[in-house]
């Protein structure tokens, strides 16, 4: 049932332990601990959640409930580059769907997949980035790209390959 930690994860685990020690005795520490763990591991693997559950005495079911409630937490590995494609009202009316389609085509994302097989890109849709004047918009990591048309998408993504 339970997976063992790989060697490369043990270093992350040591850092997580240090963080847990610094929080000792504090109530309501679950979310900061999950954020720290996700920073370290890149996502929240099952064995890390079980480890956290035991360490802080919160049932694994509740840990899982919190993780799945917040969109900031991820149960599967994420790509090194995160694309956020805005689907807010302004972007929507200015062709965000076509942009999104083009991104999926360029990255060869099939079906519902959001992460490329080589873990280079993860694509997410967001409700509003907050720069409707530039609609349609997407961000890659921290960089913002506005007034998009599908033809521009390929060149933008090329910079991150």
């Amino acid at each position: 049932m339970e997976k063992k930690f790989a060697d490369r994860d043990l270093a992350c685990l040591t850092q997580l332990d240090e963080f847990l020690t610094s929080l000792e005795g504090e109530k309501g520490a679950l979310i900061p601990v999950l954020q720290k763990a996700q920073d370290l591991f890149g996502y929240l693997p099952m064995e890390v959640l079980v480890y956290i559950s035991r360490k802080i005495g919160v049932p694994i079911s509740r840990v899982y409930g919190v993780v799945t409630f917040y969109s900031q937490f991820h149960l599967v590995p994420r790509g090194r580059n995160v694309i956020r494609s805005c689907q807010g009202t302004a972007c929507h009316v200015r062709g965000a769907s076509a942009v999104m389609r083009e991104v999926r085509k360029c990255l060869e994302l099939e079906g519902g997949a959001a992460t490329t097989d080589n873990l280079r890109f993860t694509l997410e849709s967001v409700a509003c980035i907050g720069c409707c004047g530039l609609a349609p918009v997407m961000t890659v990591n921290g960089d913002t790209y506005g007034r998009l048309v599908p033809e521009k998408v390929g060149d933008i993504l090329e910079q991150y390959r």
Binding site: I60, S61, R62, G65
Partner: peptide, 24 residues
Amino acid sequence: SERQGLDVYTSTNRGFDSIVGPAF
């Protein structure tokens, strides 16, 4: 949780996707 202390179930996901069930 309250009677058995087992905490098998929890509310997972949210909105329309909410499901009460065991972890994972």
